[in-house]
């Protein structure tokens, strides 16, 4: 198939960007979106032009590196896939495809389609962990965990930290991302111990990094490649409220979660 691409080009973080139009021909429908980009880049290199820079690594939808805003959707039009898993059979011969970087203040563009997502790491550093050191741990089966809770925790833990939720949100809110981590731990007895401190620290860091507030539009859930549920945001809000109401130390330590 033959395609017209309108791609955001920006030399570096300080320069102004603009759209540049390219033509790619003879793209196989079974190639992936990034393989189509490879074809474009090979041709640019041969012509002596600067290829389009984009983040990618695993190319199997799990590392969370790839991050293209395609035809108005983070990760493109297909449901529940990352950019690297999007395949060209989802497009038609002759289509024009518009490709942009994530656009959100906390994710500044570094070059072309590459943005800086360090703000996500900072949110995790603020409290996205259970404070245990290596070693001296009781047997893994010492605390049974109801299967439903383990499964729900796993649903939340599937987040790949790509940032599509932020890019999709008109407020650039990181609530879906942060709530996925908060929920993963809140649902496990091991995580309950610090639940209150964790949620407060992570919310504070979100604000500090410049992410916006959540106004419940649900765009994040709709665009999330891992189908992280918006119910995690509700859980995080409850965790946050009860953390505020209760003293900094949580009393509840049951395996039940909320």
């Amino acid at each position: 198939m033959n395609l017209t691409l309108k791609i955001w080009r920006q030399k570096n973080a300080t320069s102004k960007g603009r759209f540049v139009t390219y033509q790619v021909n003879d793209i196989s429908t079974s190639s992936s979106f990034l393989e189509m980009m490879d074809v474009l880049n090979e041709s640019l290199v041969i012509k002596g032009e600067d290829p389009v820079a984009f983040d990618h690594d695993c190319r199997e939808g799990i590392c969370g590196a790839c991050s293209m805003y395609i035809n108005g959707h983070p990760h493109g039009p297909d449901k529940a896939v990352t950019t690297c898993q999007l395949h060209m059979r989802k497009f038609k011969d002759g289509d024009t495809i518009v490709i942009e970087p994530w656009r959100a203040r906390p994710f500044p563009v570094l070059k072309d389609l590459i943005v800086d997502r360090t703000a996500f790491d900072k949110i995790i550093q603020a409290g996205g962990y259970i404070s245990v050191n290596t070693g001296g741990i009781p047997d893994a089966n010492a605390i049974p965990i109801p299967k439903v809770n383990a499964d729900l925790s796993m649903d939340a833990a599937a987040c790949i930290g790509c940032g599509a939720c932020v890019a999709a949100c008109k407020n650039a809110s990181a609530m879906l991302f942060a709530s996925a981590k908060v929920s993963q731990f809140a649902l496990l007895p091991q995580g309950r111990i610090e639940a209150s401190e964790r949620v407060q620290a992570m919310v504070a860091e979100m604000d500090k990094q410049g992410f916006g507030n959540c106004t419940n539009t649900g765009a994040c859930e709709a665009e999330c490649p891992k189908e992280i549920s918006i119910s995690n945001i509700a859980r995080m809000n409850r965790e946050f409220l009860s953390a505020k109401v209760c003293a900094p130390k949580v009393k509840e330590q049951s395996g039940g979660g909320i």
Partner: peptide, 22 residues
Amino acid sequence: NSIIDQCVAQGVPFAREYGGLL
């Protein structure tokens, strides 16, 4: 064996059986 203990303590949501064990 210590690895599994460590990971469970960190909150790794391993698959479990209905009885709650790994």
